[in-house]
Simulated assay, not measured.
Amino acid sequence: MLTEQRKQLILGRLRQDGQVVAATLSDELGLSEDTIRRDLRALAAEGLLQRVHGGALPASAAVGDFSARRAVEPQAKASIARAAAAMVQPGQIVFIDGGTTCQQLAWQLAPTLRATVVTHSPTIALELVEHPLIEVVLIGGRLFKHSVVAVGAGALEAIGRIRADLYFMGVTGISTGAGLSTGDLEESHIKRALMTQAAETWVLASAEKLQSASAYTIAPCSAATGLIVDRDTPKKVLAGFEKLGLAVVRA
Rank of each mutant, 00 (worst) to 15 (best):
Q5G: 09
R6W: 10
L9R: 11
R13I: 14
L14K: 04
G18F: 11
Q19M: 10
V21N: 09
A23H: 10
S26D: 11
S32Y: 11
D34P: 02
I36Y: 04
R37T: 03
D39H: 07
L40F: 11
R41S: 15
A44G: 12
A44R: 04
G47H: 06
G47I: 07
L49C: 07
L49M: 06
G55R: 07
G55A: 02
G55P: 10
P58A: 10
V63N: 13
A68V: 14
A68M: 12
Q75P: 07
Q75R: 14
K77F: 05
R82V: 09
Q89W: 03
G91M: 03
G91L: 00
V94C: 04
I96C: 07
G99L: 04
G99Y: 02
T100E: 09
C102I: 06
Q103N: 02
L105T: 03
L105F: 02
Q108T: 07
A110W: 00
T112G: 07
S121C: 01
S121W: 02
E127V: 06
L128C: 09
L133N: 14
L133G: 12
I134P: 05
E135I: 00
L138Q: 13
I139A: 03
I139Y: 05
H146F: 06
V151N: 06
G154W: 10
A155L: 10
L156E: 11
A164S: 14
F168S: 05
M169G: 01
T172S: 15
G177K: 06
L180G: 02
L180V: 04
S181T: 15
E186T: 08
K191L: 11
Q197C: 07
E200M: 03
W202N: 00
L204M: 13
A205H: 05
K209L: 05
L210Q: 03
L210N: 03
S214V: 01
Y216E: 12
I218R: 04
I218D: 10
C221K: 06
S222A: 15
A223I: 03
A224L: 01
D232F: 08
T233V: 14
K235G: 06
K236I: 12
L244Y: 04
V248E: 08
A251P: 15
